[in-house]
């Protein structure tokens, strides 16, 4: 039995009320969206805020809509709605697939897109009970001073484990945050910093209100691939989102891939598109380009023993999943996952 530490719950109904509550006592107040990650983390005493501000009653944060060509998703929209919404499937297939592979059915109904974007980093030495962590002498990320992933390491390498983040990054998503000073928009790429202790540049007192996918000028194909032990429930051991832009003749004009569950932030695979641009989908040149892109990913993506699963196995799976995900995107299929 895991009990929650004591706290009080606030239930605001507007963004303004929420922002005011969050600016009250920094450090002692936390946001609860779906609670599917926060609750276990609090049961493990990774967070012990005195007050939780629930977003469940803030109706402005829910829903999926089109706005001047952009697809706008409220931060509190449940993941199963994102996964099953026809607009998302049509405009952002990689996102629909990634949202559909987060955890299991119950958690996708409770968990939200905003919550998945703002997810805490994960590590096999961190996401454990207080007793377990204490027995080990704690770790860099919480209560201790040693890293158990990299011996002698002074920088936390807990892994970004949000399936939707790479999909959103592949589509150049922008986030809107609200705080007491007003609203601001931020490119998702600019949200991250390479620090496993807290991997975001925006303070936790800022409220993510919506996620905006800009209109794309060129037709694109997309898919998400997720490596995990079981076909459900688990966080990614490696995740990759692929976007392929094509012209009217199926010639690749641009391509992007973004990986997750390797290091503290989701990462773009550099020069991923080089071997694919100019080739025609399904042609021998394209197949060759896919091989080259998969090899490039294998060189750049280097798993560490931060999340469960053998890291050498995870590394060996990088080109396998990358190749399958590119081919799935090209075929208008996906997601790529076991079972």
């Amino acid at each position: 039995m895991l009990r929650l530490p004591k706290f009080e719950v606030e239930k605001p109904t507007t963004v303004d009320e929420t922002v005011a509550l969050l600016s009250e006592k920094t450090g002692d107040v936390m946001i609860i969206a779906g609670g599917t990650d926060l609750m276990p983390n609090m049961k493990h005493e990774l967070f012990t805020p005195k007050k939780l501000v629930s977003l469940a009653g803030v109706s402005a944060l829910f829903g999926i809509r089109e706005e001047a060509g952009a697809l706008v998703i409220g931060a509190m929209t449940p993941l199963d709605q994102v996964a099953n919404h026809p607009l998302v499937a049509e405009r952002a297939p990689a996102l629909a697939q990634a949202a559909g592979l987060v955890a299991g059915p119950q958690l996708r109904r409770m968990g939200t897109l905003g919550g998945n974007v703002m997810l805490d980093t994960r590590c096999q030495w961190y996401n454990q009970t207080y007793f377990w962590r204490k027995s080990l002498g704690f770790c860099l990320k919480k209560d201790g001073s040693a890293c158990h992933v990299i011996e002698g390491g002074s920088k936390c390498v807990a892994a970004a484990s949000n399936d939707t983040a790479p999909a959103l990054m592949s589509l150049d998503a922008k986030l809107t945050f609200a705080n007491a000073d007003g609203q601001r928009e931020l490119l998702l790429d600019d949200l991250w910093k390479s620090d496993g202790i807290f991997n975001k540049k925006v303070p936790p007192s800022d409220l993510l209100t919506e996620i905006r996918l800009p209109q794309r000028e060129v037709k694109h194909l997309g898919a998400y691939g997720k490596l995990r032990d079981r076909g459900s429930i688990d966080f990614p051991l490696f995740g990759v989102a692929v976007r392929i832009d094509i012209d009217a003749n199926d010639v690749v004009v641009d391509a992007e891939a973004v990986s997750v569950a390797l290091q503290a932030r989701p990462t773009r695979i550099r020069k991923f598109g080089e071997s694919l641009v100019g080739t025609t989908l399904g042609s021998p040149e394209f197949e060759k380009g896919v091989q080259a892109a998969a090899s490039l990913g294998h060189k750049q993506c280097r798993p560490m023993p931060n999340v469960p699963g053998d890291h050498e196995y995870r590394h060996a799976m990088v080109p396998v999943y990358l190749k399958r995900t590119i081919l799935a995107a090209a075929a208008g299929a996906g997601p790529v996952h076991a079972v």
Binding site: V9, K11, I32, T36, M39, P40, S54, A56, L107, M110
Partner: peptide, 13 residues
């Protein structure tokens, strides 16, 4: 009508 996990859902919510 939809399955959720009561161990992660606050009674207050």
């Amino acid at each position: 009508g939809k399955p959720e996990l009561s161990c992660l859902k606050l009674a207050a919510l």
